[in-house]
């Protein structure tokens, strides 16, 4: 069997396995979405049910909560694979780990970021987001959550060998999430205010492309370091 064929076979089986595991542990998968839903529904109760007040806050709120929901799910990304020795087997596979971690981060996005993106417009209604903001919200979250998954995976890989890496993970990752948050929220805000939002969206697209290419390098390095413990 040729090399590229067996690489795609390996990647396909990593992809399938991670999806199957995610669906068998549905509670882990639903956790971020339920968090997202709960916090957003509580906002009108806590701040003000007035549509005009909420509409002003909605772009920023939706983005901040989505970001925190993503952060919540990161710790488990490599944790179980580290605990049961799968990580060693992945590293010892002759196939490049670079592509394997891309698949793993992608599955993480499919099971957390993508569902968040899909329910976000619904929650936009709850926060009285003006109708001009829905498509930009959807687009910015689509690009943004993908970036968050890949960047967050770096932190997850760095802290996987620590028994209690949760706090450290947040501290490492938060600063890297800030630019995504700024441009994500400003995409939606510009659209609501009637200003062209494609500029901010393009910057988000650039973040996303950079994260897709460069984050796997950092993840590979961090994982190889983590198994040495």
């Amino acid at each position: 069997m040729s090399n590229s064929q067996s690489l795609s076979a390996t990647l396909l089986s990593v992809f399938r396995r991670d999806l199957v595991i995610a669906f068998r542990q549905r509670s882990d998968m639903l956790n971020p979405i339920v968090f997202f839903l709960m916090v957003v529904t509580m906002m009108p109760l806590g701040i003000s049910p007035q549509a005009s007040t909420l509409a002003q806050l909605a772009p920023g709120l939706l983005w901040v909560i989505a970001l925190l929901a993503c952060l919540l799910s990161l710790d488990g990304l490599f944790r179980t694979d580290y605990d049961d020795g799968t990580l060693e087997q992945l590293i010892l596979s002759p196939q490049p780990l670079y592509f394997i971690v891309i698949i793993k981060a992608l599955v993480h996005w499919l099971t957390t970021g993508l569902p968040l993106t899909l329910v976000a417009p619904l929650l936009g209604v709850l926060l009285a987001l003006p109708s001009d903001g829905f498509i930009p919200l959807w687009l910015s979250l689509l690009l943004g959550t993908l970036t968050l998954s890949f960047v967050g995976a770096i932190g997850a890989a760095l802290t996987v060998s620590l028994r209690k890496g949760g706090l450290l993970l947040s501290l490492i990752i938060m600063p890297l999430y800030v630019p995504v948050l700024i441009f994500g929220a400003s995409t939606v805000r510009s659209a609501v205010e009637g200003i062209p939002y494609t500029g901010a969206l393009a910057v988000l697209g650039m973040f996303c492309a950079l994260a897709l290419m460069l984050a796997p390098l950092a993840i590979v390095g961090a994982l190889k370091m983590s198994v040495q413990e």
Binding site: M1, S6, A9, T10, S13, V14, R17, V20, I21, R24, Q25, T80, D83, D84, G85, T86, E88, Q89, L90, L92, S93, P94, Q95
Partner: peptide, 24 residues
């Protein structure tokens, strides 16, 4: 020591995955 067996998967799925890491 840690054999890389995932508890939520079946033996067949575990083995299929582990063997796919190096050949099929």
């Amino acid at each position: 020591h840690l054999p890389g067996i995932k508890k939520t998967l079946t033996p067949r799925e575990n083995l299929a995955f582990l063997s796919s890491l190096n050949g099929t």
